[in-house]
Write a protein that binds this DNA or RNA. Structure first.
Length: 429
RNA sequence: GGAGAGGUGACCGAGAUGGCUGAAGGUGCACGCCUGGAAAGCGUGUGUAUCCUAACCGGGUACCGAGGGUUCGAAUCCCUCCCUCUCCGCCA
């Protein structure tokens, strides 16, 4: 959430930023509420001050045996009006809060303005696209043919958009998870986390999924609990409502978790295969940093994610999301799009990672602060998150990029040790 | 699930019978003095938020797990919830 003071002092800037996002927001009611809040606060605090003083007097009078009943009667009225004004204040406060919590982060000045993903800015491409002397198949066909993916039976067990990996498929998915985690922990210096897969609404509000995107989440009936849509939620909230020491920064966390998304509003899109599932595996990176380092840390995080694709020898491109495609909490986001030769007519780049800097937007919501050496005031940290990578989509990309004419799939070199030396996935018997 | 105990500042720990306790005392930490240097010792300081204000000076208000209630007044009394711990039961 944005700082109310910042909004007041930079109203034009904020309005411009929101306009870039195509977010139509009425700030007048906010400013009105804020004025009302201040007025009420002053009134209440003056009355409270009075009450505190007179209460002391009452205590003294009683001690010395005087009759205080007249004063007490007067104070009853004061207390009643405090109570009355207090109700008004908390309603006003709540209105302000609800407003602040439902407006998105401001886009960074470097972010291109645009309506949708067609206006994202291409930053770079990496690797050479594979050449096939046959028509490359989509990963769902490869997976079903090799009997390592069984989406039909998953639909029987649960429903559409749930994965069922088998044999070398299950093994490959697990190999990818381990490979990614190992790379980030030993090579990139992240500390490994295994968080809860279910979180409460406070955590989701901290990262920005709530209150606006409830429909994207799976909620546990009868509980204030939700399945995580990404491990960004539990990891970012590790230090919620804490003041951490500056020497702890930057905090770098990585975790593997399954992710659960209702995909409301995406019916009919990517209906086949592993691209869009209600449950998918992801290795995630989260950083808490000082304000001055967050953008360089973002670039590093992007590089950490890219490294996985480079090691897997998968071609990709990097784009900067335009304002229309930018997520609610982010000020700037890089997407990594992996080459999927089996998609569309002649192959397509598909999103496999998203690395974002949220500045203090989430930190303010979640109350994540730090204190500099010797400093009096705590400051909000900056939070960043990025996929490193979406495992299911990586699995799909490997199938499509490493497929051979005879229907088998070669295993990328770096994964062979994770596959007990297996070099190729053949038809499972 | 049954039976108990408890949640106070960075930490430990006071706070029966409500009032001068934002919170004693200790530890830690910071700065200063002392020292050739260090330790010890001495002194001072040391929560967060918010409002008034030009002000990170000063003052007000709020916060003792969270939320309600009683009261002129609550860390202290009442209610609800959350969390932690111990024992029993049950179960991966």
């Amino acid at each position: 959430m944005l700082d109310l003071k910042y909004i007041k002092n930079n109203l034009d800037l904020v309005k411009k930023g929101m306009a870039k996002r195509r977010a139509n927001i009425d700030f007048i009611s906010l400013l009105d509420s804020d004025l009302k809040r201040k007025k009420l606060l002053l009134e209440i605090e003056t009355l409270r001050h009075k009450r505190n003083i007179v209460s002391d007097d009452i205590a003294k009078m009683k001690k010395s045996g005087q009759d205080a009943s007249a004063v007490i009667d007067r104070m009853k009225e004061v207390s009643a009006s405090i109570k009355h004004l207090d109700k008004e204040l908390s309603a006003t406060q709540q209105a302000i809060n609800e407003f602040l919590i439902s407006i998105p982060n401001l886009p960074h000045e470097d972010v291109p303005e645009g309506v949708d993903d067609t206006e994202n800015r291409l930053e770079k491409t990496y690797g050479t696209l594979p050449v096939f002397n046959f028509k490359p198949k989509a990963h769902w066909d490869i997976g079903e043919d090799l009997k390592i993916l069984d989406l039909a039976r998953a639909a029987k067990i649960t429903g559409a958009r749930f994965p069922l990996y088998r044999d070398s498929g299950a093994r490959l998915e697990r190999a990818l998870i381990n490979f990614m985690l190992d790379t980030h922990t030993t090579r990139h210096g992240y500390s490994e986390i295994l968080p809860p897969f279910i979180v409460n609404s406070a955590a989701l509000q901290g990262t920005g999924q709530l209150p606006k995107f409830k429909e994207d989440l799976f909620k546990l009936e009868g509980w204030d609990y939700y399945l995580i849509p990404t491990s960004e939620v539990p990891m970012t909230n590790i230090y919620a409502n804490e003041i951490i020491d500056a020497s702890e920064l930057p905090c770098k966390f990585t975790a593997y978790t399954p992710c659960f998304r209702s995909e409301a509003g995406s019916h009919g899109r990517d209906t086949r295969g592993l691209i869009r599932q209600h449950q998918f595996n992801k290795v995630e990176m989260v950083k808490l940093t000082t304000p001055e380092t967050s953008f360089s840390e973002l670039d590093e995080m992007l590089a950490d994610a890219e490294k996985i694709l480079q090691l897997l020898k998968l071609p990709y491109q990097v784009v900067t999301l335009c304002t229309g495609d930018l997520g609610f909490s982010a000020t700037k986001t890089y997407d990594i799009e992996v080459w999927m030769p089996g998609q569309g007519q002649n192959g397509k780049y598909r999103e496999i990672s998203s690395c974002s800097n949220c500045l203090e937007f989430q930190a303010r919501r979640a109350g994540i602060r730090f204190r500099r050496q010797g400093a009096k005031k705590p400051e909000y940290v900056h939070t960043l998150n990025g996929s490193g990578l979406a495992v299911g989509r990586t699995f799909a990309a490997i199938l499509e990029n490493y497929q051979q004419q005879n229907g088998t799939v070669l295993i990328p070199d770096v994964l062979i040790p994770y596959m007990s030396g297996k070099k190729v996935i053949c038809h499972e018997s």
